[in-house]
């Protein structure tokens, strides 16, 4: 209904304009121009409503998702820049891309980065942006654990958890059609306002966290992705056990503690599923040497 209303309104407006001026042939050209303008305005409105309706339905194109993701990722990397170590970043991208290839969205522009911060955490932004912080990277024991952490974030993107949360929490007002195609350098007033709203909602999401159910689902899906990529299925359990051993009140853990279920709770939820369903993959490798080589370079 919401879909058709603007059309009906536009047609009524057009017919009213035409009928009222049917006998005024002298002013017909002007009136027609005016009517065309009104029609154009109505069309623009319809496009916006269609766009918002699609967003409400969760029907966001990959391109639109990437645009939203770029805005949110740009906000994250402003707070914590990527570590300036191209070899490390390329290594993490190769591992991440391999895991992402096992997902249902292998063709996204998957982009991974290690961020320079003291915080222990990992983040995803829509459209294929995945970040792991340097301290979390340093705490890992092998590449299988890295694959599991990246797999958890890839799962959030695969399932569009952030897009869903933005829709649920902020509604359609977040996105104007113009914003998605507009260059971020030259935004007009309306688009700038829309962008500010989107960034605000994104920051809210990263500081308050996704739903508990989404986090636990991403744990399960992440393990499956890493296992499909050939890594040990127990790696994520190792990461969660390690995180469970860190004092949750420590500053480095503050944001993760605030935005995720407790590591012990996540481990307890994941353990039975992994141990019963994935035991046959228990002999898949952990690949310690490559990760430890990159860690050693960082600590030099």
């Amino acid at each position: 209904m919401k879909y058709c209303m603007p059309w009906i309104v536009a047609l009524l407006a057009l017919s009213a304009t035409l009928s009222a001026n049917a006998f005024d042939l002298g002013g017909l050209g002007d009136k027609l121009k005016e009517a065309e303008k009104k029609l154009d305005k109505a069309k623009t409105k319809i496009e916006q409503v269609e766009h918002e309706t699609r967003f409400i339905r969760g029907d966001v194109s990959d391109k639109e998702e990437r645009s939203i993701g770029r805005d949110l990722a740009a906000t994250l990397v402003n707070a914590a820049p990527p570590v300036k170590n191209a070899a490390l970043q390329r290594y993490v991208n190769r591992v991440g891309r391999w895991v992402a290839q096992q997902s249902s969205r292998p063709k996204l522009n998957w982009t991974f980065a290690v961020l320079d911060t003291d915080s222990i955490n990992a983040f995803a932004a829509p459209g294929g942006y995945v970040f792991i912080t340097q301290p979390l990277f340093l705490l890992l024991e092998n590449e299988a654990q890295l694959a599991a952490v990246l797999g958890h974030e890839i799962a959030h993107i695969e399932e569009k958890h952030h897009i869903d949360a933005l829709q649920k929490r902020s509604g359609s007002q977040l996105l104007t059609k113009g914003l998605l195609s507009a260059s971020r350098d030259k935004l007009d007033k309306n688009n700038q306002k829309a962008l500010d709203k989107l960034i605000g909602a994104g920051k809210q999401l990263y500081t308050s966290g996704l739903d508990r159910g989404d986090e636990l689902a991403a744990d399960r899906k992440g393990v499956v992705l890493a296992t499909r990529a050939g890594y040990s299925p127990y790696a994520m359990l190792g990461v969660l056990a390690l995180l469970d051993g860190i004092d949750p009140s420590d500053k480095s853990m503050a944001l993760m503690t605030h935005t995720h279920p407790a590591a012990g709770e996540r481990l307890n939820a994941l353990e039975p599923a992994v141990v019963t369903s994935l035991t046959r993959y228990a002999n898949q490798p952990e690949v310690a040497s490559r990760l430890q080589k990159q860690q050693a370079k960082l600590l030099k």
Binding site: A79, T117, S252
Partner: peptide
Amino acid sequence: IGVRGLSE
């Protein structure tokens, strides 16, 4: 000892 960058 502190948290740079990604605190709330």
